[in-house]
Design a protein around this nucleic acid. Structure first.
Lengths: 335, 335
DNA sequence: TTGAAAGCGCTAACAC
DNA sequence: GTGTTAGCGCTTTCAA
């Protein structure tokens, strides 16, 4: 049997006509099959197959007002910590029947605002953003669109968007406490760009604000293994002999470790090294890397649930602060 | 001035009414502002602001038939190689005004088929899938939906979906050639699950099919750093003294390197080590890790362009085979 | 259990 | 440059 308009995709009406039922019935077969008499249903399903009918998602979204899509704005996927967050966000959202659109911002608020606009344009029902540093255009957009939005990787209960994250300052403090308690007094702090990343800023600020008799020197580099490698040059050419190096992320710390080893500088004998975030790799380097664990898995899942609840019930979630925990390993030791 | 129906979001008609123009004019202000007289436009824009009007993405998608969303099915984000592919896919698609929905499959064809259905349900205009191993439900779905779909990370010009990737067999062969040419004769091959990943299968098959007088032993483990760590135990408890270890991915090789070092086994003096994929980390380990580069960045960008072209022009792309290149580094040497 | 019909909010063809 | 209007394909009352 041939279709009469061979080039066009079949729609509900075509199926209804072919099965000799109303469009309402076809719609029911699709959405609430149990409400349709078995014979009728069979007949409709048969025609659906024959006509290769695929319901139009756009029409459906239009009719129901739901796209089942939410967006996530993250700085990059090229850092394992965000990739892991996303993996868990996606899993959590999928369970709730929501699809995840990923947009990378490179930690640039302007790009972020643009991509956020795109997310609104495609009809995202909610959004996950990273941190609490956003520009005016972004804030305005959210305000207009009135979307459920949660901010992750940061905790600030007073922020106008619910934050579901952890205390970056606390994370840095735990690290410093660990280093100071084990007798380190000359500490190099290596971190990524401060300008756009509030995570980095919080960590570095917290370190600077601590009352300690340790001598602190701050070095700035890229957030990448290579960034860590390069930072070692800076650190070694400083007029100080450091007994510890604290990196604002494990990614940098990994690079530092590799470069120190390459230069035959022993960790932790010559210098203690620690990172923040606790990536999976940190458990396996030689020496294993002391770090402070950021609860990315929980964070991804809880953000997914909170956002899904918000979208479904309209009730705005409370901010959540997940605990960070020191993971003392071999790369630091008593001085 | 108060809205008369305070609880409902304004639509085009409301704005038109308020600005005393027709809906068409408002639509033009939104889509082709240059076609509207400046004064009129100002008036409309004013009302858009006042009424906090946000165009309905769903209605727009319905009307134009375009969602501007494409989906990507990848095994996981917890492997840097896929995270990098996605990063580049997203960048490439964003340039073309397309948003990327990410769905992870865990390399399970059943999950893949389900998530593909979800992608169709949300109205994806196209899809990127990983590899060419898919189940019946998946194939049927694509057949029905008639979506533009490209397969990445694999090259097979005869496959029914255009592949944009690289030759996994060639990649493995380059590695083996390198090892054999430098005199290695007892080679341990470490790889992830064969069942679902055609990339792994191709690599392992190609190695097995080579004419070589080297003695090959195959070991199976998880695709993770920890998997590499554990595989070392297996390898060492085999009744053979290996002079080389070839890992089907750098992720595993990284774990192997760490564990060998921990056990004080020297790479490459005691055993040569190499991986496949060439992750960024491989350039910085000690010793640096010999690998074969998979062109993930190019692949992501080219897949994005090919898919965007296909969606826009309807012309199906040709398969593309990107070159893989040996990156000889310190972890392998002449025997 | 099924059908008729009223939208949902926008775009675009056409008329003025 | 601007207005009128006919859809787009589905869901969802309300009646029968």
């Amino acid at each position: 049997m041939m279709s009469l308009s061979p080039s066009k995709r079949a729609n509900l009406r075509d199926v209804a006509r072919a099965a000799d039922v109303s469009v309402a019935t076809v719609s029911r077969v699709l959405n609430t099959p149990e409400k349709v008499r078995k014979e009728t249903r069979k007949r409709v399903e048969e025609q659906i197959r024959l006509l290769r009918f695929v319901p139009s998602a756009a029409a459906r979204a239009f009719s129901t007002g739901r796209t089942r899509v939410v967006g996530a704005l993250v700085p990059t996927l090229d850092n394992a910590v965000f990739a892991r967050v996303l993996e868990n966000l996606e899993n959590g959202l999928a369970r709730r029947g929501l699809a995840l659109v990923v947009a990378t911002t490179d930690d640039d608020p302007i790009v972020e605002a643009e991509k956020a606009q795109q997310l609104v344009n495609i009809g995202a029902e909610g959004m996950v953003v990273t941190g609490i540093t956003h520009n005016k255009a972004f804030t305005k957009l959210l305000d207009r669109a009135e979307l459920p939005v949660v901010a992750i990787s940061y905790y600030d209960p007073s922020y106008h968007i619910p934050t579901i994250g952890y205390d970056n300052r606390e994370s840095a403090r735990l690290a410093m406490d660990h280093l100071c308690a084990s007798g380190h007094r000359k500490i190099a702090v290596l971190h990524g760009p401060l300008h756009f990343s509030d995570r980095t800023r919080s960590r570095v600020d917290a370190i600077g604000a601590m009352k300690t008799d340790a001598e602190l020197h701050f070095f700035h580099t890229d957030v990448s293994i290579e960034g860590g490698v390069r930072a070692v040059q800076q650190m070694l050419s400083a007029p100080v002999e450091f007994d510890a190096c604290l990196c604002a992320t494990d990614v940098i710390a990994t690079g530092v470790l590799f470069e120190l080893q390459r230069q035959n500088i022993k960790v932790p004998d010559d210098i203690s090294l620690m990172g923040l975030d606790d990536l999976p790799i940190s458990s396996f380097t030689n020496p294993t890397l002391t770090s402070v664990r950021a609860p990315v898995q929980q964070m991804g899942l809880q953000a997914a649930d909170a956002l899904a609840d918000w979208i479904e019930t309209g009730s705005r979630p409370q901010a959540i602060c997940l605990p960070v925990t020191l993971q003392a390993r071999q790369s630091t030791h008593q001085r």
